[in-house]
Design a protein around this nucleic acid. Sequence first.
DNA 1: GATGAATGAGACTTCATTCAT
DNA 2: GATGAATGAAGTCTCATTCAT
Lengths: 228, 228, 228, 228
Amino acid sequence: MSARNPKRRSEAASPKRPVVNRASAGKGGVREARSAERRDAILAAALEEFAANGFAGTRLDDIAQRAKIAKGTIYLYFADKETLFQELLRAMFAPIVRALEHIPKSDMPTRDILERMIGLFVQEVLGTRRKDVIRLIIAEGPRFPKLAEFHYREVLSRVMAAMSALMARAIARGEVKNQAYAKFPQLLAAPGLVAVIWSGLFERFAPLDVAAMMRAHLDIVFGERKTP
Amino acid sequence: MSARNPKRRSEAASPKRPVVNRASAGKGGVREARSAERRDAILAAALEEFAANGFAGTRLDDIAQRAKIAKGTIYLYFADKETLFQELLRAMFAPIVRALEHIPKSDMPTRDILERMIGLFVQEVLGTRRKDVIRLIIAEGPRFPKLAEFHYREVLSRVMAAMSALMARAIARGEVKNQAYAKFPQLLAAPGLVAVIWSGLFERFAPLDVAAMMRAHLDIVFGERKTP
Amino acid sequence: MSARNPKRRSEAASPKRPVVNRASAGKGGVREARSAERRDAILAAALEEFAANGFAGTRLDDIAQRAKIAKGTIYLYFADKETLFQELLRAMFAPIVRALEHIPKSDMPTRDILERMIGLFVQEVLGTRRKDVIRLIIAEGPRFPKLAEFHYREVLSRVMAAMSALMARAIARGEVKNQAYAKFPQLLAAPGLVAVIWSGLFERFAPLDVAAMMRAHLDIVFGERKTP
Amino acid sequence: MSARNPKRRSEAASPKRPVVNRASAGKGGVREARSAERRDAILAAALEEFAANGFAGTRLDDIAQRAKIAKGTIYLYFADKETLFQELLRAMFAPIVRALEHIPKSDMPTRDILERMIGLFVQEVLGTRRKDVIRLIIAEGPRFPKLAEFHYREVLSRVMAAMSALMARAIARGEVKNQAYAKFPQLLAAPGLVAVIWSGLFERFAPLDVAAMMRAHLDIVFGERKTP
DNA sequence: GATGAATGAGACTTCATTCAT
DNA sequence: GATGAATGAAGTCTCATTCAT
């Protein structure tokens, strides 16, 4: 339930209700296509607005306006503001998780794998609204227990496990000396979090060369010492 | 525009307005003492509520109730909700910054200094509501530009500078090999950020042994490899 | 500053915002018709309430109740209380000004013209809420500089100019002896103001026969002396 | 009872309560003198504020500040805001009424008497805050029936009666031709009202030469025709 | 008597949600 | 399915009035 909007009328509303597509249950119907388009437009607009204003600070009116639909239309696709919010965050991470789980299967040197992951991170997270989504989760997590739980279960735990495995293998191979990285994969990911936060809040005052920092980080992890 | 007096009052109102205690500027006045008490009570209540619900999600009513005062009383001490919020964050960090700036003056081994700082961090930040305040800043920063700026100027830039100097010294002394820590003090602090976020969001699902992680982090920084 | 979105919205908001009916700009839409109806209902209710209680003394709640709409609906038609107030006064006088400017074009004796104007005044001002609107302007003018300016520009200056011209003609024709009426059309209108004020405040204690007073006034203007 | 402030706590408060002077019932006590001074200071401050902001728009806080006393002190001298308001208006007119009733006793020509009255009016009403008080009565009268009644009874009816008598005498003496002035003394006073209103609202846009207008008015009353 | 901090009813305004068209 | 006008609960802020000091 929302932090501040105690779900006034509906009380025990329909659990999800993507209502859409009732008659046109065929596969490639025009209706269906248009419907999916709308849904995406709403999600895209919602992303912008939530990222900029937070959950409580975003007005459905603004989302509708940005998506060029009527306010009421949102309710045809999402049960309420909170559902929209959570579906949005959910949708944002699905592709990233898939991508991350696919990379490490190869047999290339761990450092190369990590460099690829960092590239992905810089491009797909720092370079997009996703970095704001991470901030949103940090910001609103405590008020949306389900949200935090979902992200732990679906994203974090998997990413952490993957990293842990990756580092264990690297340690076993002798690529990495310090065993701590297998036990605390957070240490591997920490600079990424710093990058996300910094870019969202302090970029303006002191730009951070994220690529360089990440490279330096890898140097530390792999025990090399570059002389810049 | 106000209902009663189309343009009057505040506009470019008094910058702070603790209004209270103008005439009774004696030293130990009862009024004065009680006034400070109230102010603190409000700040304490505000901390709890803001930490739990964010800025927009917090009701002044709840703060008043928690502080056991009337709603209107808040306005005797703070001009409005936003001012209260900012003063709160400001007040929370003053002591920490002071403490951090005092530690590194000694001549003890850098690792000892860092361990002491970490101890302070664990006790005074992770062990208190301050960790939530950090989350608040992350969460609300983009919507309160002044807030982000203030914290960059008053807290972050100083802490980063201090850390950078500390690491430069450690490198010069040969305690630390990797020069990156002087250039990117963020790498030193990153696990602390992880700890804050993790404790606020995921502790429930997977407790994180912060102390152990921090120790492991120091081991990495100082090139030791403990076998746990 | 708003609780939710520190600075956003209105600021230098839409100048008027009848918001309603953007897409449905067809000619005789049902929506459109009902919308105009509502707006009028709100204005009518506002008239009653403002006339009875003044600007600061009127609650939007009461206006809504009288108009049989929800409080929030008012804001679909008017940006805020002040805008509603000013639009109301504006709307009340448009027809009167038009009417007054149309009368004097004829070539009938000046006295007849004035008698007609007085008839209009008695019927359309004294006989309606408009007399209260005049009192409202007198009462609130100093606190709403724009209001006073608007009414001077749009109503008073025109009415005064028209009267001045009328009296100049009457003097040229020999209908009126005293030249002062052209220079101080206020002397011609003064009894009308008295009638408005008196009817609003003292009618109860001492009824004033406005028609008789106005007739006596005309007798003075035109130098006749009726024996009653 | 106030229009908007339904007398919250006291309900059936003490009817008047000028409380002051309990022990020091002597005549020239220092206490007493200081007390009267305070009361006057409050009234003076109240005059400024009410004149500028109307009844509902004035804050007791501002009155207190202007009078350089504490807010609570006002309640030692006046039962509540409304009482203060009414006492103020009452106090403002006592001297004027006395003055007006004293003038016409002489046997000088009526025109001279009227000129003197006009002088008094210009100096003591138009030239002071009293003109604003008249506007206040017009503005707030309908919401304070007692106020309107009081002013009708104590001020208006007397002034009207005095004028009526004066004009009856002038007519009997042949100084004034038109008998209407005895029946409608309002016609005699009307330009004064115009002057008050105009000076309060429109002076800024179009200054009005009140003295000249009044002279022209007298010319009309006395059937003279000055060529300016 | 005087003070001014405290109170709390109530005003304006916003916005998630509903529903007639 | 889509629209957007309407609703009304709830939030922030104000200020007349009280009362402990």
